[in-house]
Design a protein around this nucleic acid. Structure first.
Length: 431
RNA sequence: CGGGGAGUAGCGCAGCCUGGUAGCGCACCUGGUUUGGGACCAGGGGGUCGAAGGUUCGAAUCCUUUCUCCCCGACCA
């Protein structure tokens, strides 16, 4: 992508509405534009990141054996009346009346719909287990949307639903998802902390929430330091669930089961939540299968959510500095940015284009900053949008056949010979 | 939903108290000078002052109503 052809409206001053750092940076970096309270347009740069995160979530779901489908945003009230949640959900549910006077709603979650889909096609224990997910926009009419995309009213969520014959099997599905969640967040460069959680309005009796560490996080976490250094290849959900972790209002210093040496205290942001809720919805919505003995039994269900759009903000909260965003490589909108300080200089233009074409040809996501503007603006914009590797090309260095390469993750730069640049980047990006 | 605050150019704000030609900085456009850290000089465009009603010779400014947005708290991916 050439910057001159892209749509990347960076701004120097964030609007006074924006309060937290990720919100400010997302606006300044031209990632989002607010449309109304808690509702945002995703501009090209923001969309690239959102899609990256979505894709990682998708791949890890698929790896864990979940199957993707897509349910609508607009639902009829019928199923919600059956499940009893049409009234329970209250004002947080956006209700809509269609032209023929039917009561519709913009889905805040999908337990009802998925259970209905399941029950109309699955009748035998032989078809179990099943685990279905979708990545779809949700709407919850929060009393107080805030913090940009971290707490929007409209938000993109991955939610999936597991169906099992009995509690024992359901716990296996639960643990399977538990493990997939840890892997998903680690892949994004984050440190996930899993906590035993209240089940809330979804109901049920087993639940964990997943927070990621960020200095600016909303909640204070107390946890076993072993949770910080997990190897995604060797996760044992049962063992992990036994490690101590609590949010501040649950933490009790006197009764804390682990030693002070093992206890860590950090700030976190909730990005995922999983529930096992047994037969709560299958009972009400007739999701029964015949077991071996021919008896009709309600299936045991779990549901699992990841806030995809929230993660964009959460990752920025975890990775930024005073100059802007520092994207982890896996979610970065571009891997490499070629910053041509002097587009009007023939040598700079030629060299920049040479690199650009190489990266394009080799499917390394690259943005070429070919704008004609002051050097300071160019450098600071690039710091703001936080591309992991920035190749800075200027007349001065190029005379000596040098280019500067800046690693935005640790802000270290070095000058290397222009002929070794391609090898340098390849070594960094190909593992 | 309780408490507080704000709507004036794309963004950040001043003007309002004490009514009288709608301003400043950044951004934008034109020309020129610059060229390794948001550069400089000159010229220029852009506003139904959130909306409706009222008071007045005259309203961004005073009064009434209303809409929107933000912050703190209770609640959530």
């Amino acid at each position: 992508m050439k910057y001159s052809n892209f749509f990347l409206p960076t701004i120097k001053d964030a609007p006074s509405d924006a309060e937290i750092i990720s919100h400010k940076l997302m606006i300044r970096a031209g990632m989002i534009k607010q449309s109304s309270a808690g509702i945002y347009s995703w501009l090209p740069l923001g969309l690239l990141v959102l899609k990256k995160i979505e894709q990682i979530v998708r791949e890890e779901q698929n790896n864990a054996g979940a199957v993707e489908l897509l349910m609508p945003t607009i639902q009829s009230s019928d199923l919600w009346i059956k499940s009893g949640r049409y009234d329970d959900y209250g004002k947080e549910m956006l209700r809509i009346t269609d032209r023929s006077g039917r009561e519709m709603l913009y889905g805040p979650t999908n337990e009802e719909l998925i259970t209905d889909i399941f029950q109309s096609h699955i009748n035998s224990y032989k078809d179990l287990p099943k685990n279905l997910y979708h990545i779809q926009w949700k709407f919850r009419d929060e009393v107080r949307p805030r913090f940009g995309v971290m707490r929007g009213r409209e938000f993109l969520m991955k939610d999936n639903y597991s169906f099992d014959l009995d509690e024992n099997e359901a716990k296996k599905s639960y643990d399977n998802m538990f493990k997939a969640y840890i892997k998903t967040f680690i892949r994004m460069g984050l440190t996930p902390i899993s906590l035993r959680a209240e089940t809330g309005p979804i109901g049920g009796n087993l639940s964990h929430e997943f927070q990621i560490l960020a200095k600016t996080g909303e909640s204070t976490l107390y946890y076993d330091k072993k949770l910080e250094t997990l190897n995604p290849e060797t996760i044992d959900p049962n063992k992990l669930q036994s490690f101590y972790a609590a949010v501040d209002d649950q933490h009790d210093e006197k009764n804390c089961p682990i030693s002070n040496e093992d206890l860590k205290i950090s700030k976190g942001i909730e990005v995922g939540h999983i529930f096992y809720f047994g037969t709560k919805y299958s009972d009400k919505l007739n999701a029964f299968v015949q077991d071996k003995s021919g008896k009709n039994v309600p299936v045991h269900m779990g549901s699992y959510g990841i806030g995809v759009s929230r993660l964009v903000g959460a990752i920025i909260e975890a990775y930024h500095d005073e100059k802007g965003i520092r994207w982890p490589l896996e979610v970065a909108p571009f891997k490499v940015s070629i910053v041509n300080l002097m587009p009007e200089d023939q040598d700079c233009a030629t060299k920049s284009l040479e690199y650009y074409e190489y990266f394009m040809k080799n499917n390394i996501e690259v943005i070429l900053d070919d704008r004609i503007c002051s050097i300071g603006k160019k450098l600071s914009d690039n710091e703001l949008i936080g591309i992991p590797y920035q190749i800075i090309i200027g007349k001065r260095d190029l005379k000596d056949n040098l280019v500067e390469i800046k690693n935005r993750q640790n802000n270290e730069s070095e000058k290397i010979s222009s002929s070794s640049l391609i090898d340098f980047i390849n070594n960094k990006l190909i593992k």
